[in-house]
Design a protein around this nucleic acid. Structure first.
Lengths: 167, 167
DNA sequence: AGTGAAACTCCCGGATT
DNA sequence: AATCCGGGAGTTTCACT
């Protein structure tokens, strides 16, 4: 079980590419004082380890007509069917998050909808049929912050340049 | 104001690049039956319109040692200082979302922390000093879904051109 | 693991329709 | 707006360290 797989080069690379997926690897290489091939190898390694889950252009939901963002706590009639419900939720494109949480809810989800009316439609037509007994909805008027976990302060774990001895 | 800024080519492009930011634009071009330069122009347009907010490699927080994810509803002693508090929250790298919502909370945030102990530390050392009167915390044991809003699938970018007459 | 060079592919500007 | 084009730049593989 690898615990500390990231060395400072990994972190530097992640920092750069997590902010701009289109940055040329050669530019990353120059910033890190290594060769382009090294970056290529590291990114491949990080991807294989699952640390990098992929890359994406980030789209502003509001700008493409999704003006309502909501969080919902759901209560299931049959809580033991959690996994099945998750599978159904995956098929609903408007559902972007689903968590198993503390706090009493059976599940906690995040949804984007065109407007409040559309949100109601989703709840009524797509969520209710999954077997909800009750739900609580929190609507976001405004996302003042919405970003990825930043790697700024992540080097705390090990200052020493460590060999990553796994396997 | 522009209502329908996106034509089917835009949607097709967004669909592809929102799933893989590293895909060569030429490959997108081939998939859309247009030239590479056309993709280049469209992406520039979508970026200028703010529809594309940027690009990023997606990092799995858990894999880099952030094993606790939590949502918190915050109540401020001085709710009118919302904007100031937001500015302070932006400085805390572990805070990845902040919303102004219905539901009684003054604000609703999402946080990543290394573990529960680290979360408590953040709450006590960084959040409390912002002037919290009370808070409610929901901890996620498991993110069963975590993705971007996906665009509806596009029908063939065909001969039919729908005019996007704006400006 | 990282390097450097080679072969391949892509990016992106300008001119054109 | 989209197309073609071309020089400059980036990507990726591989033998070597």
């Amino acid at each position: 079980m690898a615990k500390q797989v990231l060395d400072s080069l990994d972190r530097h690379i992640l920092k750069l590419i997590s902010q701009d997926a289109r940055i040329p690897f050669l530019e990353v290489a120059r910033a890190c004082n290594v060769s382009g091939a090294a970056i290529h190898q590291r990114v491949a390694k990080l991807t294989n380890l699952g640390i990098i889950k992929g890359s994406q252009f980030v789209i502003d939901p509001e700008k493409i007509g999704y003006e309502t963002c909501a969080y919902m706590g759901l209560f299931l009639k049959e809580p033991e069917k959690f996994d099945q419900v998750v599978e159904e939720l995956k098929k609903i494109p408007e559902v972007v998050e689903c968590h198993y949480t503390t706090g009493g809810f059976d599940m906690f989800i995040k949804i984007y909808a065109v407007n409040n009316h559309h949100l109601l439609e989703i709840i009524h037509d797509k969520l209710q049929p999954l077997g909800l007994s009750r739900s609580e909805t929190i609507i976001s008027f405004n996302a003042a912050i919405d970003r990825q976990l930043s790697l700024k302060d992540i080097q705390q774990v090990s200052d020493e340049e460590d060999e990553t001895t796994e396997e």
